[in-house]
Design a protein around this nucleic acid. Sequence first.
DNA 1: TACCAGAGTTTCACATTGGAAACATCGTGT
DNA 2: ACACGATGTTTCCAATGTGAAACTCTGGTA
Lengths: 234, 234
Amino acid sequence: MPTEALSNLSTPSIGEALRERRGYHGWTLSDVAAKTGISKSTLSKIENDLISPSYQSILQLCAGLGIEIGDLVSGSNSKGEDLRRLTGRRSVSHGEAGLVMADDNFTYTYFCTDIAHKRIIPMMIEVRANSLNEVGGLWNHVGEEYVYVLEGAIELQTELYEPTILSKGDSAYFDSTMGHAYLATGDQPAKLLVMCSSATPNLAQTLREVLSERLGKRVKKGSNKKDAVADKEI
Amino acid sequence: MPTEALSNLSTPSIGEALRERRGYHGWTLSDVAAKTGISKSTLSKIENDLISPSYQSILQLCAGLGIEIGDLVSGSNSKGEDLRRLTGRRSVSHGEAGLVMADDNFTYTYFCTDIAHKRIIPMMIEVRANSLNEVGGLWNHVGEEYVYVLEGAIELQTELYEPTILSKGDSAYFDSTMGHAYLATGDQPAKLLVMCSSATPNLAQTLREVLSERLGKRVKKGSNKKDAVADKEI
DNA sequence: TACCAGAGTTTCACATTGGAAACATCGTGT
DNA sequence: ACACGATGTTTCCAATGTGAAACTCTGGTA
């Protein structure tokens, strides 16, 4: 049942990323050492994959180089596969062609699904629901979310703010761990372009979650076993 | 000139994130140990911030828990500030209100700019340029990018693929490290909704880069100092 | 050629992390 | 109260990461 333990896989090389970035800017090891507070000897070892830097060091690197951790270790994925060489991916979606999922309240259309491990999950959502009850309350998941209204208007409900109306051309950005829900205002369905920061390692899992947990999962962040979300095998 | 070295700041707690996630699923330390291949004693220490896990361990954690590194370490930012408690941010942009930047070829409108350190940078781009020469060749930067055509049509030029026409409602996802450019087809300007994965730690830097490097920077990934992009102070 | 300076690597002593096993803590049942 | 199992913490030692300094390598210069 537990997934296999992965001990010494060919881990995505953080050293390679560092070297590339350093070279790009024309920095020397001493430059980076000054910026990050990490000794140049250590930096050299990191670049040559002689050591696996600690979390502490990684943070210093990110801070000093002015980049987000995701960019330094891009290429890592949830399977531990080596993706370090995916620097030329591209996917095009025409019109509303995509992976479609629908129920009474929503139609989800996922775009560019041929690309795995995206940092941004783009989708179109057609909203028909008009009340919180219909959709089963507020939703939450890890990550951040951006919504842009393409057609119609919605009421954006969130856990910590008063409901807001978003009309065509309006948009909102929020933390997805905060409960949230999209509701159509009036009879006409609304069309949204929604982006989720890649909280889910793969789309299959996303779909499964949306399909199966729709009615079971609500805004809750329990920490005891009884309240916890069931651990579905993927 | 080099930014100050940050040694022992209150680092964003990876332990806290781990504990929260574990509790959410109702997993025990032993469960997580089985999933990740990390011993429960080590996991305990990580959760209690007694040790700073190595890159290797962090990867194992992400792989075992099925999450992206950015979600485990969310809260880290490029300044080393402690952002671990920002779980309820929200920003709304109405219409085309936003931070606007324009030149002859493009008008950039950044949305929700009051939120810092976004994982997704949402912007609207109005494209007037019709040729690669006008825009100064292909562009590249770290991260990933998603473009959705709101109005008009564009030709998406990339380093590794043949140019593609995207009309209203079409979209594309690609790796931003690959050179790319948006060109309007015909006389009418095109309006795009573009998302960049948060490659830049803050918007100020983004703006500065776009403004000042527009004409100097091209598709190049040199590693010798001569060709490298100038190291602008931020 | 010799010399020098700058960049990167390696050495070595020390500090920190990782894991097996012992230990502590808690709730439950008898 | 006691035993028991399950969960999480601590101990101890081996394995690994870190930094100062020594070292190598390269290119420029006299």
